[in-house]
Write a protein that binds this DNA or RNA. Structure first.
Length: 292
DNA sequence: TAGCCGTGGAG
DNA sequence: TCTCCAAGGCT
């Protein structure tokens, strides 16, 4: 498979002009700053991550600082970013960096992959964006751009396929630093131009090469992507309960939690799950709190 | 692997 | 109002 020579240059040129000035992208940003940003950005929009990321870096400027803090403080400082287990995983990752990597963010992709909360995407992203390495970085933005420009379809399938990964690898520039910039540039293109709901093809630097646009932007043909139920789910219940603990200074009485959710069975199930997950602890027979 | 895990802004 | 979904990971 040969590299189509016309994609890299236009995308890099576009990125040079339109890239957002994000804290974790600045030259002085530490690898730790990149790690914190990648955890927070997992399924959470940039706009909501920005203030929390800044607060975290101020409070915990290095892995050792976070590792020394109680996990409950990490959960509290996570605020309303969602998926609070990410805060626990980031704390655990910081601990692993202290215990196994001298307090530094490991540079090796395999070592990154071994950290809690770091999967294939995050390992490649940190290795690329913090250390300038050459890796296939496949997130939802990149997958969407590749699917449209090269695949001619509106949306990628539910999971990454081997063919998709091979295609991404074939597109990756040979030079290490160029590859790293290419990866972040394609992500940015997906985030700002080739968006899911409202792509603005007139502003796209590779519109003339886009198979999907050329085909008349045909709508998604595959199985409908199942909408995630929300009202009345355990997720909503857990969020409600954890919100009570997060917004309290100290332990809260059961009554406060009971007032937050009507269904007794579901509330008790979720409370037990939060404790099992390490997001909450029973501080007495009748009180709960974030873990100390 | 499919289901689960939060939250709130945008259209 | 309601649906969609935003730089995933884990089991």
């Amino acid at each position: 498979m040969e590299q189509p020579p016309d994609l890299v240059e236009p995308v890099l040129a576009w990125y040079d002009v339109h890239a957002r000035d994000l804290p974790w992208r600045r030259p002085e940003a530490s690898p730790w700053s990149v790690v914190v940003s990648e955890f927070m950005l997992q399924q959470t929009p940039v706009a909501r991550v920005l203030p929390v990321h800044e607060a975290w870096l101020e409070r915990w400027p290095a892995p050792a600082a976070l590792a020394a803090a109680p996990t409950g403080e990490a959960v509290r400082a996570w605020g309303r970013l969602g998926y609070p287990r990410r805060a626990l995983r980031l704390h655990a990752a910081a601990t692993a960096m202290v215990e196994q990597h001298g307090g530094e963010v490991p540079r090796d992709r395999e070592a990154l992959l071994a950290l809690p909360g770091v999967g294939d995407y995050t390992a490649a992203a940190v290795a690329s964006f913090a250390f300038g390495q050459r890796h296939v970085v496949l997130d939802t933005n990149v997958r969407r751009v590749h699917t449209r420009v090269l695949g001619g379809a509106e949306f990628p399938g539910p999971s990454v396929t081997r063919a998709e990964r091979d295609r991404a690898a074939a597109l990756l520039p040979a030079d290490e630093a160029t590859a790293a910039t290419w990866s972040v540039a394609v992500m940015e293109l997906g985030a700002l131009v080739c968006t899911a709901a409202d792509p603005s093809c007139p502003r796209c630097p590779v519109a003339e090469h886009c198979a999907w646009l050329r085909a008349g932007r045909p709508p998604h043909a595959g199985p409908p992507r199942r909408a995630q139920a929300w009202a009345g789910t355990d997720r909503q219940c857990r969020g409600r309960l954890l919100g009570v603990l997060r917004d309290a200074d100290g332990p809260v009485h059961r009554q406060r939690l009971e007032a937050a959710w009507d269904d007794d069975v579901q509330r008790e199930r979720c409370l037990a799950a939060l404790v099992a997950d390490g997001l909450a602890v029973a501080t007495s027979g009748a009180t709960y709190a974030l873990p100390g």
